[in-house]
Amino acid sequence: MADDTQTPRSSPVLQLLASGLQFWIRQQCEAVDSLELQLHGSSLGLLRGRLDGVSLVARGVVYSSLEIERVELRSDAIEVQVGNLLRGKAVQLDQPFQIEGSVVFSAGGLGRSLCTPHWRPLGDQLVDGLLGLTPLQSVSIERDQLVLQAQDQRCATVPRAVDGGLQLCGVEGRPCVSLPSDPNIEIRDANLEGGVLQLHGRARVSP
C-alpha cells in the first residue's frame, strides 16, 4: 500500500486537505493498493471554500465489488468545508462535482467481479443475451476481443461506447448487448488494448 500526495510544500492547509481527501477516497472503496493525489488551487482559494480540482492515479482498486486495475481521474472545481477540516474533523464535500478520466480492467479482474453476488446477475445477463445460455463461467481477452464463456459455448465481443453507455457487440453475427447505464456516468470511448479493457468518460459525483 502506498500514498504519494503532491501538494505545494508551503501550503500546510492543502496538505491537510490532501490527507483528508485520501481518507475520504479510501472510505468509498473496499481496497486501494496505491494512490497518488495532486491538488490544484491555492491556500487562499481553499480558505474561501474552493479547490480548483484534484488529479489522482490509483491502482488495485476494488469499488462496489468491482476490481479495477488502474484509475486516472481529474476533477472540476470542488467546494470544501474548510472549517471542519481545520478543527480536526473529517473532510466534508457538500456539492456534487464532475470528474473525467479513464479506468482499466484486466480479464481476471472482470471475471472475478462478475462472479461475485453483486455482479453475477449482470454476467449472466450478458451471456444470456449473447449466447442464450447461463451462467457465465469465464472472461478472457484474446486478440483484442473480450471473450465470454457459458457452459461449453464461447462468444468473442468488441466493446463500444454508444450514447454514453457501453455495449458488448458479438462478432461473427452475434448480437450486441447493452450494459445497464447510470445517468451520472457518460462513457465516451471503450477499447481493448494490451490485454486490458479501457473505458474513458465523465461522471458526476454526489458526496
Rank of each mutant, 00 (worst) to 15 (best):
V54F: 10
P96W: 11
S102I: 04
R74F: 02
V103E: 02
L51G: 01
V82A: 09
S75D: 03
V61W: 08
E67Q: 12
R87A: 10
R59Y: 03
N84A: 15
G108D: 13
V80L: 03
E67F: 04
S65G: 09
V54I: 12
S106P: 05
L56W: 04
V57D: 07
Q98D: 14
Q98S: 12
L93S: 11
L85H: 06
G88R: 03
Q81A: 15
R87Q: 13
S102Y: 04
G83V: 07
S55Y: 10
R70E: 15
F105T: 10
S75A: 09
V104Q: 15
S55W: 13
Q81Y: 08
V80S: 02
R87C: 04
V62Q: 05
E72W: 05
V57P: 00
L51C: 00
K89A: 13
E72Y: 02
V80Q: 03
A90I: 00
A90V: 02
A90T: 06
S75L: 07
I99E: 11
R59L: 07
L86W: 00
D76H: 06
V103L: 15
E69D: 14
E67N: 07
E72S: 11
I78P: 01
V104I: 12
G83Y: 05
D76K: 08
E67R: 12
S106I: 01
L86M: 07
D76M: 05
Q98Y: 09
S102F: 04
I78Y: 00
V103N: 06
V62T: 13
A90Y: 00
E100A: 15
F105M: 07
S64Y: 05
N84R: 15
Q81I: 11
S65C: 08
G88K: 05
E79T: 12
A107Q: 01
Q95Y: 07
G60K: 09
L86P: 00
E69G: 01
V91W: 11
Q95L: 13
V71A: 05
L56R: 01
R87F: 06
D52S: 14
V91Y: 07
A58P: 12
I99Q: 09
V54G: 06
V57T: 14
V80H: 03
S106H: 05
L56S: 10
V104W: 10
F105Q: 04
E100N: 13
V82C: 04
Q92S: 15
Y63L: 13
V54D: 02
F97C: 11
N84H: 03
D94I: 08
S64T: 09
D76E: 11
L85G: 02
